[in-house]
Simulated assay, not measured.
Amino acid sequence: MPSTRRAASTLMDENCPILVSRSLGSLDLPDIWPTNCTTHDFQAVYKCFNKQAAAIIDGKSIAEEITSRIACEVRRMKESTGKVPGLAVIIVGQRWDSQTYVRNKIKACEEAGIKSLMTELAGNCKEDEVVNALSRFNKDPTIHGILVQLPLPQHLDEERILNELSLEKDVDGFHPLNMGNLAMRGREPLFIPCTPKGCIELLIRSGVEIMGKKAVVIGRSNIVGLPTSLLLQRYHATVSIVHAFTKNPEQITCEADIVVTAAGVPNLVRGNWLKPGAIVIDVGTNPIEDSSCEHGYRLIGDVCFEEAVRVVSAITPVPGGVGPMTIAMLLSNTLDSAKRAYDFT
């Protein structure tokens, strides 16, 4: 494993915004096609291929820097208004991954000074129990963000439940209106889904130019794949989506300058799927049995890391890549919601 780590430039003065990604409205440009299209020679760009190992995009350190800045803003809000942002989490069932994610989110809230509440429901609970918990948090003025940990058990109607969530508190960005505004040029969602938002932040902080690049998103879930593809389009990438029914997925993927994978299949993407010099954002978090590890398993991504680092120019590790950024974006969205609620700037 290469030792080089890319943490991006994070030394910014206090007056700079917490995130470096721009508002979507400021990105909108008219579609004016050039009269003479030329073929770009990417081989010159990647002439150093295989001479050095890929840089590791250190999501953990970037997330820590963002969380620190959020904590400063929360303290400033408390000193000025006497109030702090509040996040409520609803978790249904005992999925190990959901339990882990929620614990990490609650811990991050504590570190940032954000108030957190959690409602735990049995895996066989009735749909109305989830809706009632949502309704209570919708009405609570001290709660500015509500997170329903997905996926939900199959007997629950996810669409109905998410529709009950107040648009102004949808810090996960999954409300149909938020997703619709993300998809439409000229529109600005109140919240961008946390994992896609974190992926874009990692790319920008790592100095990756998105505009005009070929991007492939592997996976089309409502949580990651779909909103990531929409967000990359808003940043003017040319986006292809690869899914389980795609023919020759390796051929499509190996043409991409940027690959974001969220298929949930360990080691799906091999080295020969990747273009020399590409940038890889691995969202996959897959537990693999390993008796040598403390909990009896270890986490690996969708990308075969050992092969990819010999081909690409930069890649996120698993763990320590996208995961911490997802939580940092959740805190950022919750802070933004509280600022709107309290008219705090």
Rank of each mutant, 00 (worst) to 15 (best):
I143L: 10
V102Y: 01
I114Q: 06
P17G: 09
P85R: 03
N132P: 01
Q149M: 08
T246L: 06
S166R: 08
T35L: 14
C16V: 09
A71Q: 13
A44K: 13
V171T: 09
M211C: 15
A263D: 02
Y342K: 10
T100P: 00
K60V: 06
C254Q: 14
L87Y: 03
L232N: 06
P153D: 08
D140V: 07
A108E: 07
L331Y: 05
A54D: 05
H155P: 08
L150W: 02
A237K: 05
E14W: 10
A262W: 10
E168V: 14
P151G: 01
K47P: 03
K78E: 15
D290L: 06
L268K: 01
D257L: 06
I66E: 05
L152S: 04
V131M: 13
Q43A: 15
K107M: 12
N248S: 14
R5G: 05
M77F: 05
S80A: 15
Y342H: 14
D170S: 00
V89N: 03
G271V: 08
V84N: 01
V130Q: 08
L134H: 00
D97P: 01
T345K: 14
L177C: 09
E168A: 13
S229K: 06
P317G: 09
N178V: 05
K107P: 09
N286A: 10
A263P: 09
K214R: 14
I279N: 02
G82D: 09
P151A: 08
V148H: 04
G212K: 09
A338T: 08
G219F: 02
F344W: 15
F174N: 02
S135R: 15
K197E: 12
L167G: 08
K78H: 14
R136V: 14
F305W: 13
A53W: 11
K247Y: 10
V131S: 13
G323M: 06
A244L: 12
I146L: 12
H243R: 09
P2D: 07
N36P: 01
L134E: 00
L19K: 03
I288Q: 11
Q43G: 02
I114G: 04
A54W: 02
M179G: 00
N272R: 12
E209Q: 12
F245Y: 15
M12C: 10
D290C: 11
V309P: 01
C125S: 13
I258A: 05
Y46K: 13
L182P: 00
N104M: 15
D336N: 12
G113F: 07
V259R: 02
I281S: 03
G284R: 03
M12V: 12
I210F: 08
A341Q: 11
E73K: 15
L29T: 11
L335G: 02
V259S: 00
A108Y: 01
K214G: 03
G186T: 07
I90G: 04
S68C: 11
R103M: 10
F305P: 03
V309G: 09
N333S: 06
V171N: 03
K339L: 04
L87R: 00
P17K: 05
R22T: 11
A122L: 15
A112H: 04
H144C: 05
Q94P: 00
N267T: 06
E127P: 03
N222K: 13
N222L: 15
H243G: 06
P151W: 08
I91Q: 15
V309F: 04
F305R: 07
E79I: 04
R75Q: 13
E64C: 04
A63Y: 01
I281M: 07
T81K: 13
V216K: 00
G296Y: 03
R76Y: 05
N333E: 07
